[in-house]
Every structure is written in C-alpha cells, then in structure tokens.
Nucleic acid binder design. Structure first.
Lengths: 351, 351
DNA sequence: TTGTACGCGTTATCAA
DNA sequence: TTGATAACGCGTACAA
C-alpha cells in the first residue's frame, strides 16, 4: 500500500516537515538549497500529498462537484464536458455525479460531496414533483451550509442561488412562426416533468409563443412526459390519437423526440409530410434522421463556461447576476406543409 | 459556513466526543440513554460527519472512482450509468471522471482521486499511442499504490489488473457471414486508435473473422480512425474513394458510424442498397437511421455489473479471474445484397 | 459503559 | 529562513 508522507520526504531531504511543506506548497519563505533538496526527495519517493489531510487543515481543495440530471441524456453529457473543460482550465478538478432524475440520488451525492469537501458545486437541481418542484430538505441544507453553489440549466422556485439558464421564448416564437407559415394551426406540445424547471419554462414559453403568433392552444394539445425515451413513445401515440388532430408537434427534449420518432417510423409515417416535428436539443439522432429534425437548441459549451465563471465569482464572494442564454431555432425538413386531410383521420393503425 | 462537528453534538448531548462517535458509528458499546440523546442532538444540529477527517483516521470511504474515456460517447455514458447503479446498490458512492480520450486528463483525475482516497477504482484506461498503448507512468504509479482497481472495456498490455472486457470475434464472424451470404466479398473496416485496446481487439477479430469466412482482406481495406465523429466522416470518404471498391464496411464504434453516415447521407447514398454497413455499439441514432443499422453490441448493464462485482472482490482481497463478455450481432436492413456495379465506379461526386 | 489521550497527514503559528 | 508545536475532525486503545 501507499505510505509515503511529507515526513518521509522531509527526512530524505534532511529538513523538517514544516520546511518540506512550505517547499511543496510554493511558500516563498524557503531557501533555494532547501527547495532543490526537498523537490528532489519528493520526486524520488513519488510523493503524492494526501488531499484529505491537506484540506482538513486548509479548507482548499481545488476541486468542484458537478451534479447532472441524467448521464445518459446527451444534453447533459455535453454540458458536463463543457463544465469539466472550463473548470480544468481554471485549475479545478471536477467530480461528476448523476442524479438519474431522482431527488434521492441527488441528495446522496450532494451530501457525500459536501462531507468530502469541495470548493464549490455546479448543480442541475431536481425538485420534488409532489411539491411543485421545490427543493428537498437535503438540498436546502447543503445550500445553507454556505458552500459556493450555482444552478445550471434548471432552477428551483424556493431556492435562491446564482443561475445559468436558457430562455426559449424567442426561439419558440420563431419555430411556431415557421410552422404557421406552412399552414399549421393546431400544434401539439410534448412537455417534461414537473420537477424540472425547464419543463415549466418551455411549456409557458410555448403558450406565450402560440399566442404571439395569433394562434390558440388547448389543454388537449399538451402531453406531460418526463424527458425520457418511453414517455416520448407514449406521446407519439397520444399525438396520433388526439381528437383535435394537430398537424405539428413540438417536443421538449431529445430523448422523448427519439422515443416518439421510433414509434412514428414503426407506423410508416413520414415526418414533414404527414405532419411536422420540432424538437428541443440538437443531437446526432435528430440530425441523422430522415428527414432531419428542426431543433431548438442551446449552446452547451457556452452554458458550461458561464456556469464555471459564475461559480468562480461566487467562490470569490462576488455577487453574480443570473445569466439567461437564448435558445436557437434551426429550421429543417421535418417542418413541411400542413396536410389537407391529416393523418389522424385516415385509417392509420392505432395502438 | 458549515461548522457543526462531533464535539458540538457531544456537547449538546452532554457526553464526551468519544461516546458521540461511538453512537454515530454504530459501536455497540453504548448505553440506550446516551444513544437517544446523541442521536437527537445530531438530528437537531444537522450533523454531517466530515468524511475527510473520518477517512484520514479509518481509511474507509464507502466511495469509488470511475474513469471513463469520453462522457459524450453514449457507449460510456451507458456504462457509467450501470456502474453507478450497481455501486450504489453495494453502498458505494461513485465519483465520475472524464479522460476525454486523453492520457493527461486521465492521469490528473487518477492522481486527484488517489490523493483524496477512495476505496477502489474502475478504470477505462487510456494508453500512450506513441508506445503501443502501454501505460503512462502515473497510471503505473497509481496501480503500484495498491489501491483496488479493475479495468473495464479496455486494458493495457503492460499492466496486470483484473478486467472486464468484451470479445467480439464470434459476433464479427456472424456479421461477416451475413454479409457474405448477401454476396459481399470485399469488406472494409474503419477501426479505432492505437491507445485503445478495444481498437486492437476489434481489428484482430475482424481479420480472424474474415479468414474464418474464407474471405481475404488487405491493408487497403483498413482505415485507422480515432473512435470519434470526425474520423468517421473521413473514413466515409476513404471508403468511397477506395480503389479496391469494397461493397460493405464495418465501423468500430458509434460516433464514427454517425460521422460516416452523415457524409453518406449528404452524398445521397442509400445504405443497404448502394453498399452495406455494420457498426459497433447500439445507440439511438443507428436504430433510428433509415434504414436501421446492423450492430455489434455489448450488454453494458452486464459489463457495469461485472466491473463492480470484480472491484468488490478485489477490495476483499479475493483473486479475480478476467471476465470476457460476448458481443452480440444484430442483423438489420443496413445489410443488403452486394451491388453488381458498385457505387465507387459510378459517377459519384467525390471529396 | 464512559472518558482521556493520542494519532491520521498536513499546514498555520510562533519563536528562534 | 527554519523548526517545534498545535490544530483541523474523527476514531479508538486504554484506563477507569
């Protein structure tokens, strides 16, 4: 097992542990002679400082924690990658955790990370769906501990910490304008779960954008999914059976869109001609689809960078204004003319 | 800031810190009276033990580290998810790190994690491509530290630790038999980078499977990619311009396959008729593609579980035999009859 | 059953 | 500039 401590280094270098410590942590109050000898000894013995003991004493760890909602969702893995690269550039190691869309797993990770000490946390928070998306007691406690923390992508209504989020209102207006210009008037929406603020934001922005385009919506045109594949497949069937016969649908994230598209493909439907589709998130499967899917996307590289910058500011006790990034609408052939007689009324095979 | 220590709890409960410690860590040598009072005090004060100090003393952390090659590769995010869920079931918290296909980032993460103490490590190792995929000095040092460690998915030739890997030979034989039954005889291979043992394994298994099917291959039918999107796109062009005019191609991972498919789609080529495609890894984009892509896939849930089991065994000082999981070939319409006059000789637009 | 005292590896303080 | 010493928060041998 490992065992080489700073004492071993000091012994080998013929100095006291204190001097060795000073040399190894870059304290200027060291003589060149001591410096060379200690450094040589450390190299020789492959000394690796024990970060536990170090931060027990100094409370600096040069590391942060990143909690994402779902590692398997490419949206979050892209975000994680961006956060990690920027944190690295700032000299911070990132420990990643996966909430798996579960408050329980979120809480476990946050508590563990808090007790192991990191210098800050970047969190995509999970709310309690039974409580209008408010925070768990554990999350509140972690916030109350005073550890520097920023929210990214999602927020919680009852917790105030600096945040980096996206604003999809304008992009949705563009998307709906595009659909309208193709003759679509009844547009369905497949949304996300209550515990995610992004689901709420996208839903409200959708309603507002519909109104801004002079169209109307109805509760029957809204499907409540959960941001995952299976609920997208359900949403696809719901869409086909919808009595209001919508001619287009906007889907609130990529996993649901992929779930929906696989159902529609199985039924032999043609996107862009039978009906039109716009999805949030820009991922390979949507771009490679035939035809490519129009998307509302976020610059996750930018979002990750902004989150790291915000955290660095919080760690310096600076005040940080909320950051709102604009989503981008990219038209693609999945949006086509609204069909005269829509697919719903024809003799389609149903569930 | 946070500050509630076990002393605070002891004080509030009117006992010594030692007694409080015993109660909180489940030591049976405690009186019921002390127990109730300490527990009440701990709850009241929201006591959260400092894991640093605890493991400085006891060297148990109930956590492991997981290093994957690339968070953005769905193959690894699926693997990460599986590892995390099984570790969690075993009472272990998982800290994830991303090597980003870079030995440097791998080494940073491993060193940090080692110095912060975890009970074990599950690693998808990156080798040095300049050195035939052998280990970096840092990785060797981490291994030498004696920390329980297992490799998953990939290995290194010069490091012996327990491993959970996949064996693709049989699946490749099936895939090639399927291609051959459709009349394909010249089959190209788009492989991975030298620093990944999986690239080597798949390449060798491909050659062996070609021979087992009574076919022949040639260096001109092998393209050296790097497991990422851009090199797949390069490979797609290489395929189209290949003087040997192969009629089918096997691609060694999903990101490269997606890169290749997007090139071919842009050129208006039809997979399954113009030529046939088989890809490693089973991801949404490949299944949603038109036509769906035949795949050679791994049971990542199983791989993750096996890795955790192996690590648990190592942590108990049990000896662990290498685990080899068989890959699965799934035929799909991306494999079709070999064209009489192949696409290469026609007037295709080239690079 | 409980408390005292010590040590884990490191850094901050203080005196030299 | 250096070294001795204390302290970070916790667990545990030892004594009571």
């Amino acid at each position: 097992m490992n065992a080489v401590t700073i004492k071993d280094v000091a012994l080998a270098a013929g100095v006291s542990p204190a001097t060795a410590s000073r040399v190894l942590s870059g304290n200027p109050a060291t003589s060149p002679a001591a410096r060379t000898r200690v450094e040589a000894a450390a190299r020789e013995l492959h000394f690796l400082p024990n970060a536990q003991a170090r931060s027990l004493r100094s409370t600096k760890t040069d590391s942060i924690a990143l909690l994402i909602s779902d590692v398997r969702n490419p949206y979050f893995s892209d975000l994680a990658h961006a956060v990690e690269q920027h944190a690295r550039a700032a000299g911070l190691m990132t420990f990643m955790g996966n909430a798996n869309e579960s408050t329980e797993q979120q809480d476990e990770f946050l508590a563990t990370v808090l007790s192991r000490r990191v210098d800050g946390m970047i969190v995509v928070p999970q709310g309690l769906s039974e409580q209008d998306g408010n925070a768990t007691e554990m999350l509140r406690r972690v916030v109350d501990s005073g550890i520097p923390m920023v929210f990214v992508d999602r927020t919680l209504a009852d917790i105030q910490v600096p945040r980096v989020i996206a604003r999809s209102r304008e992009a949705l207006e563009e998307a709906i304008a595009e659909l309208k210009s193709h003759g679509h008037e009844r547009i369905a929406f497949i949304g996300g779960p209550k515990h995610a603020s992004t689901a709420m934001e996208r839903h409200q922005a959708f309603d507002a954008a519909i109104a801004a385009n002079g169209l109307v919506t109805a509760p029957e045109l809204h499907f409540a999914g959960d941001f995952r594949f299976a609920s997208g497949a359900q949403g696809a069937r719901w869409f086909l059976e919808n009595p209001l016969a919508p001619t287009a649908v906007i889907i609130a994230d990529a996993p649901m869109a992929i779930g929906a598209l696989s159902v529609w493909r199985e039924r032999g439907l043609n996107i862009g001609t039978d009906f039109s589709v716009v999805s949030f998130d820009e991922v390979d499967a949507l771009l490679l689809h035939n035809p490519p899917i129009a998307t509302i996307s976020h610059d996750l590289e930018l979002m990750g960078r902004a989150a790291v910058q915000a955290l660095l500011a919080v760690m310096k006790n600076e005040s940080v204004a909320p950051v709102e990034l604009l989503s981008t609408f990219t038209p693609r052939p999945s949006v086509g003319p609204a069909p005269d007689k829509d697919v719903h009324s024809e003799g389609m095979p149903r569930a």
